[in-house]
Design a protein around this nucleic acid. Structure first.
Lengths: 150, 150
DNA sequence: TAATCTAGTTTGTGTCACGTACCAAATCAA
DNA sequence: TTGATTTGGTACGTGACACAAACTAGATTA
């Protein structure tokens, strides 16, 4: 290892905290916690039941109740009855909620782009290629195909 | 962008969550929360006051009181009076605390190594080089030298 | 010495996690 | 069809953790 390089483990750990904190900061600008942000994030292209939300966010269903309660109180999401199952409740973004998550996501993307601004085009391409390889093979091990042909 | 590659922003975000979750899982094996783990982590090579801890972890000092309380109740850290300031309290790891954080850190390092196992030596070296460059230049922008000559 | 900082704790509020208990609707079995 | 079970969701209690404000004791300095 070169004297001016971090170990790979340290580098990945530090990068993880850096990206995580960046996202947290952008979320906080919209008065969103990390978990609220994840909630709004998954709702961008879905309208799940409470139960499905629990699976998506890997939380207990009783945690989802409070999470959705607080978001609903702020007018970010709304509950409405499932047309097919009278026990079930569907959750979807309101216009306000969509606005918030869109702004936060755009700013976060800008942060990441800025973080990589110092890299040469070659290095950036190499980074993307290697990271994609890592993520795709990790996803495959979990039985998830990141690029479904559907 | 190639059809089987994620965008750079997505790749970094996903990787960040993956690494973060890995660390969280290893911490949970020792019944440690993320923040408890960070506490034990910084105590590995320091014996700070409560106030210094607040700065290191970027938390309010009133949050530190409870954090150290809970860790102390579990026998992971201990408080002892500062020899130079009778108001101040120094916090240090117990043998039990050191054991826990050492095990978690080793397992986490193993996870990261496994995650990168599919890469060629060339790719792994490229990843480390590019990430180090990103982190070092980001730290420099914050006025932090990751490699002090001291 | 009096006025003022500083270190740390206490108290109160809010978010968010979990488990348990519970209700109502849906489904399965006899 | 009835009765039992499963499933979707909520209510409640507990605990970790964040913050702010008020407080105590010790240090500083004017």
């Amino acid at each position: 290892m070169a004297a001016d390089e971090l170990s790979t483990v340290d580098a990945l750990a530090q990068l993880s905290f850096l990206v995580h904190n960046t996202l947290e900061r952008r979320a906080a600008e919209q008065e969103l916690s990390m978990i609220q942000t994840r909630l709004l994030g998954v709702l961008r292209d879905r309208e799940p039941t409470m139960n499905e939300l629990a699976a998506l966010l890997e939380l207990d269903k009783s945690s989802i109740t409070g999470l959705v309660d607080r978001a609903q109180r702020r007018g970010l999401v709304e509950r409405h009855p499932s047309p097919t199952d009278r026990r079930a409740v569907l959750v979807r973004l309101t216009a306000t909620g969509r606005e918030l998550v869109t702004v936060a996501a755009a700013r976060f993307a800008g942060d990441v782009t800025a973080l990589l601004a110092g890299l040469s085009a070659t290095d950036r391409a190499a980074l993307t290629r290697v990271l994609s390889r890592v993520l795709v093979s990790h996803a495959a091990e979990q039985g998830i195909d990141l690029f479904p042909t559907a």
